[in-house]
Amino acid sequence: MNIFRLVGDLSHLLAILLLLWKIWKTRSCAGVSGKSQIMFGLVYITRYLDLFTNFISIYNTTMKAIFIAVAIATIYLIYFKFKATYDSNHDTFRMEFLIVPVGGLAFLVNHDFTALEILWTFSIYLESVAILPQLFMISKTGEAETITSHYLFALGSYRALYIVNWVYRYYFEGFFDLIAIVAGCVQTILYCDFFYLYVTKVMHGKKLSLPA
C-alpha cells in the first residue's frame, strides 16, 4: 500500500458515499445516470468475486464489501425508492454499446483465460467506460448539480491517483499490470473535459454548466 493508492481509495469511497448521501438527503436522483450506477455495480460484483475466497487484508475486504453495498443501495434508491425522480429521458446512453464490446475485449485480451481472470478483466475494462452515460447525461441536460460535480471530481481523482500509484509501484516494487494501467489511463482521460470545467467553474463557486 502507498499513499497514492490510499488517498485514491478514500477519494473513491468519498465519491460513492457523496452520491448516496445526495440522493438520500435530496430524496431525488435528478441528474444522476442510473445506467452508470448499474455498470459500476457490475464492475464491483465481477471484480470482487474473490471477496470470500482470497483474503488479502481487513482493509481490502472491508472496502470491497462497502463498495458493493453502497453501489447496490444507490441502484435501489434510483430505480425503486426515488424512481419518480429518475430522469430516464436524459439517461438514454445504450449500455449494451459498452458492455458487449468490453465483454468481447475481456475474452480476447487478458492475463489468463480463466473465468475469474476474464471477469476481473471485464470489470477493469467496464470501469474505464462506466462513467460515459453520466457524462453523456450532463452534456444532454447541459448542467450538473454542484454535489454531482463533486461526486464526479472525487470519482475521477481516484483513478488518476491510481495511475500515480502504478508509477510508484513500477519504480519501487518493479510491478505493473498493463491491462489495469491502460484502462485506468482511458478512464482518467474521459474525465479531462469535466476536470477542466470543474476547476474553471465549480472551484469558483459557479454551477457546472456545459457551453450550450
Binding site: D50, N54, I56, N60, M63, E117, D177
Partner: peptide
C-alpha cells in the same frame, strides 16, 4: 504468480 499481486488493489 506475479499477476496475483495485481489483485491486492481494489
Amino acid at each position: 504468480d506475479e499477476n496475483d499481486i495485481a489483485k491486492d488493489e481494489l
